[in-house]
Structures are given as C-alpha cells and as structure tokens.
Simulated assay, not measured.
Amino acid sequence: MPRKPESDKPAMSRDDLSPSKAPARARKPAKPAAVNVNKVPSSKKPATTEAKKPVKAPAKRKPRTVKPAAKGANPKRGTTKIKNPVKLTLKERRAMEMAAFQGLDARQAKFVDLWLVTYDARESYREAGFTCKNDNAASAGASRLLKKVKHHPYMQARQVELFARTADVQNQLIATYHAAAFADPRELVEYVRGCCRHCYGIGFKWQFRPSEMERRRDQYEAAKAEAKKAGEEIGEFDELGGTGYDSRKAPNYDCPECDGHGEGRALFKDTGNLSPAALTLFEGVKEGKDGTEIKVASQKGYRDTLAKLYNMNVEPAVVVNTGISEEELEKILEIAQANTEKNREAMAGRAEELAKIGIVN
C-alpha cells in the first residue's frame, strides 16, 4: 500500500507535549457584573426618570435579656404550648404516677379502676381505650390483662382505697339511719291548740283582728249611707268582742264557748331551718284540691334496720317442738279413744229415740 504523505508540521517529542511546556491557553475576558436596571416596558410612552426613595436601614434588635430566676422558683424549661391539654385531678395524677412507677401505662391503670367498680372485664377493657374487632377479641384481651394485673401492687393499692371509701359510705349511711330513727317529727309538722275567737273577747263575744274590724266598719258605713238615702235609720255600730285576736295565745279556761280547750290546727314548720336529723324524714310537700300536705317518712323502718344491724332480738322467741315422747303420745291416744266411745254411745241413743218415733226403722 502506498504510505500516506507525512504532514508538513514538524514532529513533537514527549517533552514538547508535557504540561510545563504546553502552550498557554488564552483565557476569555471575564464578563462584567450584572447590573439590575429597571427595564422600561415596551410602550410608545417615553421613559421617565423617578427619584429613588432612600432605603431605610434595618432596625437593630435589642439583645434579649433573661431575668434571673427568683430563689426557690423553678427555671423556665421551654415555651412550647400543648393544644387542648388533658386536665387531671390530683388523685388522678397520683394514680397515674403510681401506675407508671409500678410498670403500668395509662390504659392499664384505667382498666384496673373500671374493673374494680363494674367487675365487667370486657366493657372495662373497651372503655380503657383498647381497640378490638369484636366481643370475643375484647373478652380475650381483657382476660389476659386481668391475669397480668390481678395481683399487681397498683391493683392492691386501689382495692385498699376502695375498701376505705366503702367503710366511709357505710359509716355515713349508719349515721343517717340513726339520725332518722331518733329524729323529732315535730320539727316538721305540729298540731297546736290556741285560743278561740271568744276566749279573750269583751263579754266572751267574737273577737276580731284589726283588719277585720276595719272592713266591718267600712261595710257598716256603706249600709248606713244607703239607709240614709232611703230615709231609714240603723242602729249604732256594734264592736262585739273588740279587736286584738291572736291565735298564738293559750286557751282561756273560763271561756264558755270552747270550755277552755281552744281550737286545734296543724302547723307546718319552715323546712329551710330543719336540723340534719329532721331533714332525713322530710320527703316533700304536696299541694292539691284538699290543701297542702307535707310528707314525713316513717321512723319504724329505720329503727327496724338498726335493730337488725346491731343484732337485737326485736321479735319474740317462738318455741318449736321438734318431737314428742311415747308417754305423751299414749295419753293423747287414750283421750281420743274415750271421746270416740262417748260419741258412739250418744249416736246409738239418738237412733233409739228416732226409732221410737218412727223416723228410723
């Protein structure tokens, strides 16, 4: 093959191709920095030059000063606020702390509290916040959890607290029964006897209250005016027993109208001033067509309950014979046979008498 013609350029050695001896590359000139120029919108109106407003320097922020914490005060730990925080009472917080200390979480502690009140493991398991597909799953989960916490220290502590509260309720209930059993019903309603209208009247005549006497006098004046128009005359006004009647006075023993017994009436006391014992007997007020009726509980039930509570033998003892001796049984049999023989003899005598008359053949 014919060889290619060599180039006119001279051949270059390795030294000529090294970076130190390589020809320097010409650098491009640096571009000028970009300058923001307000472009004039493409419109036919000539551009107008406006004076630039001076740019205000940003205000320097004052360094934040932290006030030193007062002695005995807790230092501020953070400023993050929790939305809708859960409000817990002091007892609930203590219970949560106890549960966390003993290794139970909030749901398990709530399950223990609910189970001690209802003794329904499945419903307590659900209300405590555990998710379950159906009733069977809830029952199984509740059974497992109950086995875990049944002998837990938290369970025992809550049981002790519950028993203490139960004892307090029992003591309050016994105190209420005791107060009701020995309360005075006269604090609610009382039957009182007071003077009648004639007891303290002038000449033992009918005695009026001041307002009643005033109305009676007005009626007399009106009747007198009508009689005067008609040309008639009426007698003088008769005050009878006068005024001053007070039903709170005691009966007058010398009164000829009531024989010194006065008049009786029921008096309802103000229920706003009742004692705690009388308040246990008060059951309300009933107003009807027959008047006002105050309801008072019977004390017999309270006393019977206290008697049973303190194991008192209220009912008389009844002697029950569980068996009878042979001697007593023979005596009863002899008496019965003797009575039977007497009855037979009497029936035979009657039959003879009837036969004589001809009634019986």
Rank of each mutant, 00 (worst) to 15 (best):
E328P: 00
M347E: 11
L162N: 13
E50N: 12
A336G: 11
K150S: 12
D135F: 09
K45D: 11
R94T: 11
K147A: 13
E226L: 11
N273Q: 10
L173P: 07
T322D: 12
E123K: 03
Q102K: 04
T79E: 14
N74Y: 09
T79W: 08
F163Q: 14
V320S: 07
L114T: 04
S13C: 08
A51N: 11
D254G: 03
N36L: 15
S298C: 04
K56C: 01
G72E: 06
E212H: 01
S43Q: 09
N343Q: 12
L146H: 01
L114I: 09
R122M: 08
S20H: 13
G262Q: 00
Q337W: 04
T80K: 15
P153L: 03
P251F: 01
Y119K: 10
C255V: 03
A307D: 12
K4H: 07
T176V: 15
E127N: 09
G284R: 00
F268D: 06
A140G: 09
A121E: 00
K249L: 05
T292N: 01
P316V: 04
A70S: 12
P251R: 00
E330A: 09
N311C: 02
A250G: 05
S143I: 07
V169F: 13
P256T: 04
R209V: 00
R248K: 08
I82G: 02
R350Y: 04
E6H: 07
A346I: 07
G323D: 13
Y245M: 01
D290K: 09
T65L: 14
T176A: 15
N343E: 10
I234H: 02
E92N: 03
Q172S: 14
T340M: 11
V149Q: 00
E327Q: 09
Y310K: 09
L333Y: 06
